[in-house]
């Protein structure tokens, strides 16, 4: 096990610690916090009202299609959140950055809630449309695996008496689990699934009318900004809690 205190001082001019130390982050985060939160709320209010009241019903799904305005952003954020978790894990394992450990600890629970919401709203959409709450097809199963990866990450983080060991074990799990993300994305193309393939792709025009795409974009922006705002808030709290502990120990 390597530890930073015994390693020789870094000779490179680029030192990642200087760019992302907790104090700089704290100043930066408290400055952007209100802006991110307010714009998230604005986007969400516009997107949800647009999606619920003004966007057209689908020709065969009827009004049930409006579940999409929650389900799709949640699905994208569940994967995106895990990607952020894995990036934190990489920073934590290679550069031993303390902020990365804290960030991973705060992204985990929020990501788990979002993945659960993705599964629940998907289930509530599947029952009236497909005729079933749940099937064990490749897409649904791989998203369930993602949910358990989040849960495993949370558990591992707190499983050791030595907090550093917990961070390390959780980071390794986060990196191993990143392989689930391409499986989720491409499961609908690689194997026959009950879940339909992606509506959006890089090479084709989206198979959705513009009157539904716009509220979806607004909802996605709202949920994404809300996710960032939540992580920011939790991470600030976590840094301050650490300072409080530090003060109390030194007294």
């Amino acid at each position: 096990m390597t530890n930073t205190s015994s390693s020789p001082p870094s000779q490179s001019s680029f030192n990642i610690h200087r760019f992302a130390n907790p104090r700089t982050f704290l100043r930066f985060a408290s400055k952007i916090q209100s802006w991110v939160t307010i714009s998230a709320i604005i986007f969400l209010v516009i997107g949800v009202i647009w999606g619920l009241c003004f966007s057209p019903a689908d020709w065969q799904q009827g009004d049930s299609v409006r579940i999409m305005y929650i389900h799709v952003p949640m699905a994208i954020l569940a994967s995106g959140g895990y990607f952020a978790l894995a990036a934190c894990a990489l920073c934590s394992l290679i550069w031993k950055h303390p902020l990365a450990d804290l960030a991973a600890g705060e992204i985990g629970p929020i990501g788990a809630v979002i993945t659960a919401l993705c599964l629940i709203t998907g289930s509530l959409w599947g029952k009236p449309m497909w005729g079933t709450w749940w099937v064990w097809d490749a897409r649904l199963t791989s998203v369930l695996v993602l949910f358990f990866l989040y849960l495993g990450h949370i558990t591992l983080l707190h499983a050791f008496d030595n907090q550093q060991k917990g961070y390390k074990a959780a980071a390794i799990l986060a990196l191993v689990g990143v392989f689930d993300l391409p499986i989720i994305k491409f499961s609908v193309n690689w194997w026959h699934t009950l879940h339909q393939p992606s509506t959006f792709s890089i090479i084709h025009a989206p198979a959705m009318s513009l009157s539904m795409i716009w509220p979806l974009i607004f909802c996605f922006m709202g949920f994404a900004l809300g996710f960032i705002a939540l992580v920011c808030m939790q991470l600030r709290a976590a840094i301050l809690e650490r300072q409080v502990r530090h003060f109390l120990l030194n007294e």
Partner: peptide, 18 residues
């Protein structure tokens, strides 16, 4: 014993479909 509907990835308002 069970039949499930698999809808496609197209989302289209009723007016367009008509």
């Amino acid at each position: 014993s069970e039949v499930l509907a698999k809808h496609d990835e197209t989302y289209m308002p009723k007016e367009v479909a008509d």
